[in-house]
């Protein structure tokens, strides 16, 4: 272990956990109300970022307007996906639904490649990359104080991501639509018999997931550039969701931060093999979660044991 690196890498890891939490939130939103785990969430993320890029750079409208338009378009895409692809699957076995979202991910990935090509693009910078924040910690190493360097774009992405998650939690907690969605997630038939329009709720969930995905996509693209591999970021968000609990919105924050932290800590190691483990760390955590506590930290203990 490089002990002097640990504070820096922990903080960087935690900051990276913010966008992870936001990505995971999209998955939780859909799962909570529809019991569908959306393997195409990464492609929704990619679509949001590509649409923003297209509007802002190719067409040339102001960036803030482009982001707002892209958010609306992503919401529409999410809504259409629910209506066209997943509505016919209501009541089908789990395997069919999993495969439907996997097939969807392939179609969206193919469309993205067909219309935008596989080249790396320069995404407009939203946050300044110069002048990182410096924080002097009270810790010392070899007589020198340890200074934490926080890149502005990471800090602001983190803040925006966490604010989004909190806003969505507030939406669920305080609005009528949120209440309806929570009700629907308890029991579909019961909710329907109480007069909730369950298909409208499903559509709303998917639209919200599209919104969250496009914001996440823009945040990730502005800090790490935009190409088609953006969609695989979501693969690190699957473990976040399972760690936090499939139905838990606060769980996404805790899960995101823990996964980010674990990646950061592993990256601080001196052994190259352990350092390289950063990329599979989410999945090692995932296996541990599945073995010890399959419902996750804040999930509902609804798993039917075999």
């Amino acid at each position: 272990m490089n002990w002097q690196l640990i504070p820096q890498f922990s903080v960087t890891g935690l900051l990276a956990g913010g966008p992870l939490a936001l990505t995971a939130l999209g998955l939780v939103l859909i799962f909570k109300s529809t019991y569908i785990f959306n393997f195409a969430q990464g492609q929704l993320l990619l679509m949001g970022a590509l649409l923003t890029w297209w509007l802002a750079v190719d067409i040339g409208i102001p960036l803030w307007l482009a982001i707002i338009l892209a958010v609306f378009m992503s919401a529409l895409i999410g809504f259409l996906i629910e209506r066209l692809a997943l509505r016919p699957m209501t009541g089908q076995p789990l395997l069919s639904i999993v495969l439907m979202t996997l097939g969807l991910s392939q179609v969206l990935q193919g469309l993205a490649l067909l219309f935008f090509g596989g080249v790396q693009r320069n995404f407009p910078q939203i946050f300044s990359t110069a002048n990182p924040y410096k924080i002097t910690t009270p810790l010392y190493y070899n007589g020198n104080p340890i200074v934490l360097i926080l890149k502005q774009n990471l800090v602001w992405s983190f803040v925006i991501a966490i604010v989004c998650v909190l806003l969505i939690s507030a939406f669920f907690r305080f609005t009528n639509a949120g209440l309806a969605m929570r009700g629907a997630s308890e029991d579909h038939e019961l909710a329907q018999s109480l007069g909730l329009k369950i298909h409208r709720i499903f559509g709303l969930s998917w639209a919200l997931a599209g919104v969250v995905a496009s914001i996440g996509g823009v945040l990730l693209a502005t800090s790490s550039g935009l190409d088609l591999s953006l969609s695989i970021v979501v693969l690190a968000a699957f473990p976040v969701v399972l760690l936090g609990g499939l139905e838990s919105i606060p769980g996404t924050i805790v899960g995101g931060l823990l996964i980010g932290l674990s990646q950061g800590l592993v990256a601080a190691s001196k052994v190259p093999m352990v350092r390289n483990m950063a990329e599979i760390m989410p999945y090692i955590v995932l296996l541990i979660v599945l073995i010890i506590r399959p419902e996750g930290l804040f999930g509902q203990k609804r798993i039917e044991r075999v």
Binding site: G103, L104, S105, Q106, V107, L108, Q109, G110, L111, L113, L114
Partner: peptide
């Protein structure tokens, strides 16, 4: 692009 598109 066509491969995943056809398959999906």
């Amino acid at each position: 692009a066509l491969r995943p598109l056809f398959f999906g």
